[in-house]
Design a protein around this nucleic acid. Structure first.
Length: 154
DNA sequence: GCCAACGTTGGC
DNA sequence: GCCAACGTTGGC
């Protein structure tokens, strides 16, 4: 069964435009260092799951594109790169701690901003809007996916 | 830059 | 296993 996700990226690191410019509009979702988010990628996601591409930690946080899960999980290479900010000295090649999936942008949309999302009653119970939420990957209910993709004409 | 909220670490 | 201290996220 296809599931839906919201995945946060800091546009200073990888924006939706950066992803679109990549080969096949596909980027490895590097840098996740939270176990819950990792478990979603490693254990739950399937190829073709729907993804809301979200810009965080920026001037106008919001959903900026529709994407899809484009690979099965594999070890995040940055955990082994000594020069990377995501280097994890405790992770071993033979038992990698951090996994990721590839994400392919299907369509860039207008920015459905965080304030606009908060203003829509039908979206109020989205996990990403819950107070104190810091999780960079959250599951999205089918009703929310349908509402948002329709709203964005995607 | 501030700070609320939450996750992780490590001593005990 | 508890929990204080610390670090990070991310909106504002």
């Amino acid at each position: 069964m296809v599931q839906y996700w919201l995945m946060k990226s800091e546009p200073d690191e990888v924006s939706v435009d950066d992803a679109l410019a990549a080969p096949k509009a596909t980027v490895p979702w590097t840098g996740v260092r939270n176990y819950q988010a990792r478990n979603f990628m490693r254990d739950v996601m399937r190829i073709d799951d729907g993804v809301l591409f979200y810009h965080s930690s920026c001037a106008e946080p919001g959903i900026v594109g529709i994407a899809r899960v484009a690979s099965t999980p594999y070890p995040d290479p940055t955990q082994f790169e000594r020069s990377s900010p995501y280097f994890d000295p405790a992770s071993k090649q033979e038992s990698p701690r951090w996994s990721l999936v590839d994400v392919q942008v299907v369509k860039k949309t207008r920015n459905l901003t965080l304030p606009e999302m908060r203003s829509i009653p039908g979206l109020a119970d989205m996990l990403v809007l819950k107070k104190g939420n810091r999780l960079s990957i959250t599951p999205v209910e089918a009703k929310h996916w349908r509402f948002i993709t329709k709203l964005l004409g995607a």
